[in-house]
Structure formats: C-alpha cells, structure tokens
Design a binder for these strands. Sequence first.
DNA 1: GGAAGATCCTCCCCAAACGG
DNA 2: CCGTTTGGGGAGGATCTTCC
Length: 333
Amino acid sequence: MPLFERKFDVDVLRNYRDVAVIKALFDRWVLPGEDAGPHGLRVAVRNGYLNFYVKGQSVAKLSIRSGSPRFEVHDKYVAGVVRGHEDESKYAQKYTSFSLDHGTAIPMMDIAKWVHAAETYAGDEKRFVDDLVAVTAGTLDLEMALPARPDARGRVAPRMDLVVAQGQDIGFWEAKCAVNGELRSEHNKPAAPHVVDQLRKYVGWMDHDGGPSEVRSAYSEAARTLLALAEMFGKTGPAIAAWQTFADAGDAASVILPPGVVVGNYCSPRADGVPRSTEMERYLAHANSFLKNEHEARLKRFGIKVLPIDCKPAASCLCILVPGKIAEVEPRP
DNA sequence: GGAAGATCCTCCCCAAACGG
DNA sequence: CCGTTTGGGGAGGATCTTCC
C-alpha cells in the first residue's frame, strides 16, 4: 500500500446529493480559478475524506462511515462562537460528529453558522492562500501533509500550502506572509532561514524510491475525484479543463521540486470589513526590509524560486516551476 | 483481527515578549 | 527598527483503545 494517498468514495455520496445539508455545503463550493467571496468554500480531497475550507480555515470534514456520510466539525463552529468570544477557550480541540444514517432523522446542521464562525479564525496567511487559489485554476490541494516514512522517528507531517497542476506536471508552493519571521535570518550568520529547512524536508521525503510516483498517482485520483464532484454538483469553470489535462496525463506527469516560495506583501480583508491599515503598514515595512536586508537574495542563492505578491492578484500569478536543487551550503556572493 | 473512535504528537501559523 | 524566542491553538497523520 502506498504511504501517500488521495481518495474519496464519490459513489456513496451520489446517493445523498439531494439531501439538504449536502446540497447546502456543495452550493458554497467555489472551484479554484474563481473568487470565493467572503464565505465561499474550497474542497480538498484527503485520504478517505473531504475537507471544506473557508479562507483556508477548515470548516468541516466529510467522510463515508458504514455507507453513510459523516461530518466532523469543530465545536466552536457548531456553537457559532466567533474569534474573540469569551467562551472561545472552552471549545479548544473539541469536535462534534454528525451522521446521515439511513432511516434516522437528519440532525440539525446550520452550515451558514459553521462557515461564518470559522471565517473569523482564518489567519492572514490562509487568506493569502485562498487569494492565490482564486486565480490558480489548476489547484489540486491545500495544506498537503506528508505522512511519516516507516523509518522516520516521531510523528511527523510536514506540510506544503499549495499543490498546483501546471499543465501535465505538479508544482508545490509554500506561502508565507511578509511579516513571517521564518523567511528571515541574519544574513551574516550561517543558519538558513527556517523556510529553507521546511522545503528541504519536502524534497527529502520525495527523494525515496516511489515518492514522486505515489504523489503523482494520488493527485491523479484527487483530480478525478474533484472532476466527479464538480459534475455531480453542476460546477463549471477553468478548473475543469486544468484538472482534466492533469488527470489525462497519467504517468506522463512529473513532480517538480523544489517547491517555490510565494510571499504575501499585503493582508487580505476579513468578512467583518474592519480596515486593516495598521497591519498593511507593517506588511509594507517587512516587504521593504525583506529586500533591503537581503532575505530575498539569500533564498534565491539557495536555489529557491521566490515570488513576491504585492496585492490581491486579479489574474494568474503563480509561474511555472522548473526542476532544481536546494544548495546544501549557501553560495555566498 | 480488523474497523472505528479517541487521544497523542508534530508541524505550522500567529501574536506577543524579548533583546540587540 | 529588526530579528529571535516562546507559547497557544488548529490541522492532520500516528497510535492506542475499544468493540464486534
């Protein structure tokens, strides 16, 4: 059995496509390549379940258990507790399950309440990722987590923010906000910025026999699943062609490494509409010092593609990644 | 013994404190 | 002002427990 898989039982879900809560959830689904607005959802295929995100924040997981759909939702969202509410900590790390068993009453589920509550917990980086998805029709996955290899110590799940079909191939992007210190380290010291180590873990995981081919076939299956779901719920848009091109490529697809780093030099608005001018000034200052203090130059010297984004993109902005290597030792000018 | 549930652990993001 | 450190919580795979 492969370590890394992407799959979901679409055929069982088909029997429930007209159930109100299922419809309500998928009504909010907005395919990559289109703006999701304040409360539109993205769908990611995981290993046996789907995850729904609003602005990159997980709203609900949908799995098939004993032949029926089952939701798992954070208690905060079920209760409609928004960020900053005094009861917030009471709900930490707690989840509720809802089953749509045959013959039993459909439990009370207020999807709008879940989504509105979850939106308030989305951080700036997750919002930035959703802005990228809105202009990247080939998006295959968000928050991709790699399973531990059997020989690895500890329970590890390193993550990459975006998985993108670029034509026939798969590219990976790590998104970071300009204010994130992981993009930086003092340029006259040997220690590389943390993000370099993060990318190295990814490349290291892939650098095993079967790694890239497992990832390729997992995402072929994810693309087929997304296409089937899109058809089932009547979704159209540029993602369909992008997914189809990738799915049709099959074994011809390549896994492109290393991942690129996309830097958000702005902060995306929240649904509450509160202006974020003080944060924006902070972002601007960091964007400037990122260049002035050679942090960008350092990442490039390591062989990493760095793509700064200065404001919410209106059109496709992620470039085609090409194969490369991360330098073991930073080449100094 | 296998599947489902519950809990654990690590990675990652974020904000605030800290120190040069 | 700039970069590092620290601690909390979400996400999700890993692992242990329960149950049939």
